[in-house]
Computed example of a mutant assay.
Amino acid sequence: MKTYVITGGTDGIGGAIARTYLDRGQEVVVVGRDTAKGEAWLETARRRDAASRAHFLRADLSLLSETGALLDTLRASFTKVDSLVLCARHFRTTRLVTAEGFENTFAHFYLSRFVLSHGLTGLLDSADAPVIVNVAGPGGAGKIHWNDLQLTRDYDGHTALTQGGRLNDLLGVSYADRRPGTKVRYVLFHPGTVSTGFSGEYTPDTQARIADIRRTAQPVEEAVLPIIRVLDSPPDSALSAFVRDTPLLPQGPAFSVEQARRLRLRTEGILADHATAMKSD
């Protein structure tokens, strides 16, 4: 039996992937911050006579403390993780600083994925053919604001998300770069425009545009098919990228090894400073 850990797995793309592997007889751990949605997931498993293989772990991934607690729980509860699927994302029209002092989108969309990717490596290494699928839109045109990663000046929700996509591209590059010879396959995945819940807080104008997008977007059940194919048969390369069914060569400025190393060092510094601050409190 394989073990799948899926963030943002209570609905949307993550939820469809979770149901797929539960129905296939696998063990599925869904991570989300909404307890009611988590209970609905567990009830779905009970109706399918799969309660023993379904798990819900509540965590607000915008908080490093809760991401760290999630890691501790996973390490204590499982001997291996075959697949880590990173789907959790949340749009914010206005800038929000978390209780830990981080800009919300930076913490939720990037920092949590960095911590989970690296933090679960031990459990992934224990699997036969481990894979991380980071659903973040590789190859996007977003700009990295190196001097202001948390957008303290001129915050814009779209800018925060597109920068997050670029940061996740570099996360994939640095993961493979840091672990030459690893059997973990890191996959950056762009599902295209999907009719999901579009988790977030929007202005009325933006909500109207989202309603228009939903009318022509691909249904979730269709969007997850290429992701499932990747999970079932991970690529041979340590790092790969896809836009739906189409492979995207992870090269060029968006996948710069030098920038990936720069970002990794910056991120490790941010995490170290946070850990020191927590100890002194």
Rank of each mutant, 00 (worst) to 15 (best):
T159N: 01
A40H: 07
D49S: 15
A223V: 11
E268C: 01
R48H: 15
T98M: 04
K80R: 14
P250I: 07
Y186W: 14
V133M: 07
T73V: 03
P234T: 07
V85A: 10
R153N: 14
R19L: 14
V97L: 03
D245E: 01
F106Y: 15
R215A: 06
L123H: 08
S65W: 05
L239K: 01
D212F: 02
V173C: 12
L239N: 03
R215K: 07
R19F: 15
P226G: 12
G14T: 11
D60E: 12
L149Q: 13
E66T: 11
G14K: 09
N134P: 09
V243E: 00
L123F: 09
F102I: 13
S233Y: 08
K183W: 00
S195W: 01
F102G: 10
D128T: 15
F91R: 04
G269C: 01
G181D: 00
E268F: 02
D128R: 14
L249H: 00
K279E: 06
A241F: 11
G157K: 03
T206H: 08
V173H: 13
G164F: 00
E221M: 00
M278A: 09
T206R: 04
I6Q: 10
P253N: 00
C87L: 01
G181E: 00
S199E: 00
G14W: 15
R209H: 09
D281V: 06
R89I: 08
L170D: 03
R215G: 01
D212P: 01
K279G: 10
K37P: 13
L74C: 06
L86W: 15
S256F: 02
S117K: 06
V131L: 07
L271S: 09
P180V: 07
D82M: 01
G15C: 15
L86C: 15
W41S: 07
G101E: 13
V5M: 09
G200E: 07
G164V: 02
D128A: 15
S117P: 12
R92E: 12
P234F: 10
F56H: 09
A40E: 11
T159Y: 00
G192C: 05
D154M: 00
V31Y: 13
H118N: 05
A99G: 12
P253F: 00
R179M: 03
D125F: 02
L248S: 01
A141S: 02
L231C: 07
D60R: 14
S233D: 10
T3C: 12
A254E: 06
V187N: 08
E66N: 04
G14Y: 14
Q26S: 15
G101C: 11
R266D: 05
D34P: 10
D205Y: 00
P204M: 05
Y4K: 07
C87H: 08
R261S: 03
I17E: 04
I228G: 06
S280M: 10
T193P: 01
E100I: 08
S77C: 04
P250D: 10
I6V: 14
A238Q: 13
S280N: 11
F189A: 04
V224P: 03
N134Y: 05
S126E: 01
P130D: 09
D273M: 03
V5C: 10
L263N: 11
K143Y: 04
L167C: 06
S52W: 06
L116V: 02
I144L: 07
A18V: 13
R47Y: 06
Q26H: 14
V224A: 07
R53W: 13
L57T: 03
L22F: 09
A275P: 10
R58I: 05
R153H: 14
A36I: 10
A40K: 14
